[in-house]
């Protein structure tokens, strides 16, 4: 080995490594969802936790990538008008199998004619993450509520679990207030979410994220507000 050699530019490998990993995840998810693999019903609930883990890996990958690209100013941030109905049905489709296999019901509540401006990829990343998180802590019910409140699009993910711990509520609200820290696995998701919220601006108003307890089921509530 030539020790004089400069270390390789790791970013050069990012694109190809991510390309590979995403392909692998794609194949894994579709295997575990079991459309064509003929998994029987018993097996489906057994592989459900694996599907959950694979989705977690994907969410982490999406978040790291987005943070990296936004930080270097080459994320193609794009505010487009989205039909909420379409947006929600796509999120549901990406998650339905996992919800079914985990025995969780997802209640939907939104106005079918609502449209809103946001970056589809980023917001869908945030909501997937929130849903995935809620699946872990809920008892058996989730609710996705989307409303227009005072010219903000408010997206709530509520569960019927025991709610966020005091520490988690504090961390969540500190991050959303701009305290800059990231610790452990919770840090990444929160950092990503608050970054996405802050990228969404409209006439002096900025998006925000909060964690609460309560909601319809009295469990944890994740709330994203977009101007």
């Amino acid at each position: 080995m030539d020790n004089q050699e400069t270390p390789p530019d790791i970013t050069a490998f990012f694109a190809s490594a991510i390309h590979d990993m995403k392909n692998s995840l794609c194949v894994l998810i579709n295997f575990l969802e079991g459309y064509h693999t003929g998994l029987d019903e018993n097996l489906k609930s057994e592989v459900a936790p694996m599907l959950y883990e694979v989705k977690r890996v994907n969410n982490n990958l999406v978040q790291m990538l987005a943070i990296y690209k936004v930080g270097n100013e080459f994320y193609p941030f794009e505010m487009t008008e989205n039909a909420i109905d379409e947006f929600v049905s796509e999120i549901v489709m990406q998650n339905q199998t996992l919800l079914d296999n985990l025995g969780i019901t997802l209640e939907l509540d939104y106005d079918k004619d609502l449209t809103w401006y946001f970056d589809r990829e980023l917001v869908s990343g945030v909501i997937s993450h929130a849903l995935n998180n809620a699946m872990r802590y809920t008892h058996d019910k989730l609710r996705l509520l989307i409303t227009n409140e005072d010219d903000y699009l408010v997206i709530r993910v509520e569960d019927n679990g025991t709610g966020y711990s005091a520490g988690m509520l504090e961390t969540g609200n500190a991050v959303s207030k701009g305290v800059d820290f990231a610790s452990g696995s919770t840090g990444l998701g929160l950092f990503f979410t608050s970054m996405v919220a802050k990228l969404h601006k409209h006439r002096g108003k900025t998006g925000s994220m909060t964690l609460e307890n309560g909601g319809k089921f009295g469990g944890g509530c994740f709330v994203l507000r977009l101007p």
Partner: peptide
Amino acid sequence: AEKTSDMVIGAAEYMPDDYIIKPIN
């Protein structure tokens, strides 16, 4: 696998009709 700004800058007449980000079920 990811949407980058290099990808979406082309002239309007050569834009694809949609992007699908992997993974998709």
